[in-house]
Amino acid sequence: MRTRVAASAVCMLTICASVSHSSELQLFAWPVACELGTTCFIQNYVDHDPSDKTLDFRCGHRTYDGHDGTDIRLPDLADQRKGVEVVAAASGRVAHTRDGMDDVSVKVLGKAAIAGRECGNGAVVEHENGWSTQYCHMAKGSLRVKPGDRVNSGQALGLVGLSGNTEFPHLHFTVRYDGTVVDPFAEGAAKGECNSGRSLWQPTLDSVSNYRPTEIINVGFADRAVTMDEIETGEIKQSPPGSHSAALVAYVRAIGLQAEDEQAIELRSPEGQLIAEYRAPKLPRDQAQYFVSAGRKRGGSAWPPGAYTATFVLRRKGAEIERRSFQVDIAP
């Protein structure tokens, strides 16, 4: 039930630049047409640690070694197939583009097949005063700009995809100043430093800077046992339970889990009776993502009608840090 989530862009620099003159600071709009925390989530931040260890801008580990951007992921491939726009984070000129790479997980293709093209389909936009932004892993055939085009802040560049060195649908977004990587959450933070620096997000994006050490990105019910692949593809959403389903299963997927985290999920009948539960063992190590489920096979000719409720609880160092309840209505 666990898996490593990896994503990479062309450049793997980890140095964070500090801009000499505050007047030159470039502020950025959110580069994906989504609602953070609801229809998209941050999987990885910039790695601030110069060694082989990891450190994000809030002294956590929501990153991996050498990661040079912000990974803005969609909940699953079903959402990606609907078409989610990648937009210019600031006005500027398109310097480089690539298109034509297939939207296939690197787990299928292998890293050798995308060597030198880890960014996948993407674009680089140059802004004023030495700033630039890079947009990676976009959908094949979706790019709407070409080198030399002028773009405005918020203008669509293409769609979120699965091209290049990635296992999940997302945008890898990198900010650079004079060619050096800058963390847009912590401009000016020195190497190895966290809880410092300035946000480069526009003032209207205050919620973007609200650091989320752990997030729930998928919840639902199914009529059978659930796998991680079915959650990732979104296929499991095509199997909702009904009154005559052979089983009733609730599932939750979270990201940013830490070693020793404790997860529990329970399922209750319309009358409030506990009908299934699962308490996962403490995690032996940090996990980029993890899912748990609890379910039960149908005992009679049909499931009693009504609202079935699932509750997921995540505890860290003895304290409850996440709780989510959700329901499914079973008709007669």
Rank of each mutant, 00 (worst) to 15 (best):
A307G: 01
A288G: 07
P305G: 11
S293W: 05
R285W: 04
A280K: 01
S301G: 09
D286I: 05
S301P: 00
F291Q: 06
R296T: 14
Y290R: 03
W303P: 09
S293Q: 15
V292P: 01
P305H: 08
S301M: 11
Y290V: 03
F291M: 14
V313K: 14
Y308E: 05
Y308N: 08
A288V: 05
A307H: 06
F291W: 15
V313L: 11
P281K: 02
G299N: 07
A288K: 04
R298S: 03
A280V: 04
D286K: 03
A294W: 01
Q287P: 01
Y308S: 10
P284F: 10
G300H: 02
A302E: 13
V292G: 07
P305Q: 12
R296D: 00
Y290E: 02
R298V: 08
G299C: 00
D286S: 06
Y290Q: 04
G299I: 09
L283C: 07
P305I: 05
A302G: 02
A288W: 05
A307W: 02
F312M: 02
Y290A: 01
V313F: 00
P281R: 01
G300E: 13
F291D: 08
G295S: 09
W303I: 08
G299H: 03
G295L: 05
A310C: 12
P304I: 12
P304G: 08
G299E: 14
G299P: 00
G306S: 07
Q287I: 00
P281F: 04
Q287N: 12
A310V: 08
A280C: 00
V313D: 12
V292E: 05
R298E: 01
S301K: 13
A302K: 13
V313T: 15
G300W: 01
R285N: 07
G299W: 00
G295E: 09
A307R: 13
T309H: 05
F312N: 02
P284R: 11
T309M: 08
F312L: 04
L283H: 11
G295Q: 05
T311S: 14
P281L: 04
L283S: 09
A302I: 00
S301T: 10
